[in-house]
Nucleic acid binder design. Structure first.
Lengths: 112, 112
DNA sequence: AAATTGCAATACCATTTGGTTTCATAATTG
DNA sequence: CAATTATGAAACCAAATGGTATTGCAATTT
């Protein structure tokens, strides 16, 4: 069984508020990356990316493992459960609207 | 029929990053509230609460309707769909964890 | 051993954020 | 009409945020 770190989702919501950080999380879906590797995907200094990684770590969205002189950043999707849980406080409300209103249109738009 | 405002979820994520604003959304689940009514629930000035309401409006999380000299704030839970959709990009990954916890059930499904 | 590489830490900067106070205005009430 | 009420708007402020550049150190490579 997993330990349960985050009772309060503030640090996670805060981490998700920045588009660069959300992009980093998407990158880490496919594989773990060192700081330099993550930074290679952005038009900013490695130091700036490292700060973002720190915020993501504080939000429990990634874990960081030293490996030689590198720091391997690993996605921790479990933290997103806090977000998912919070959003679900509103499920009943929007169900009442959307299901009644237009699930068909919804599907169209979801295909993005 | 609803108009489709937000393609990009940045303003919504940004709005959710503040605990006061998340609290306001929870308040608005049960009923629409004027600015003063919302402010009555917090230990800060009405002006500060009004700023939060503006950010929530920019994130399409609430709508504001003038009614006499009041501004009625109404929850718009549909905006949370953008968040829900984004989080779902990671569903498969954290499924991979749950799978490890309950391989029996999983094997049945994997036979699909 | 020397050079290079990956990262940490710090100082610094401009902008944003979250709050305040004050003043003005529109709607309601006595 | 006068007083009150609900809000809007603006100026202001401290702290946080998102970025930079620089310096130093530990690990790797040659």
């Amino acid at each position: 069984m997993q330990t349960h770190q985050t009772i309060n989702p503030q640090s996670t919501f805060r981490a998700l508020a920045d588009p660069t950080r959300r992009e980093i999380l998407l990158l880490l879906r496919s594989k773990d990356l060192s700081i330099a590797e993550v930074a290679g995907n952005f038009d900013m200094t490695r130091a700036a990316v490292k700060k973002h990684l720190r915020v993501l770590q504080e939000g429990n969205l990634i874990s960081v493992t030293p490996q030689g002189r590198e720091r391997i950043n690993h996605l921790e999707p479990a933290a997103l459960k806090a977000v998912s849980d919070w959003v679900s406080f509103f499920d009943e409300l929007w169900d009442a609207r959307l299901t009644a209103l237009s699930s068909a249109i919804d599907k169209e738009w979801n295909s993005k």
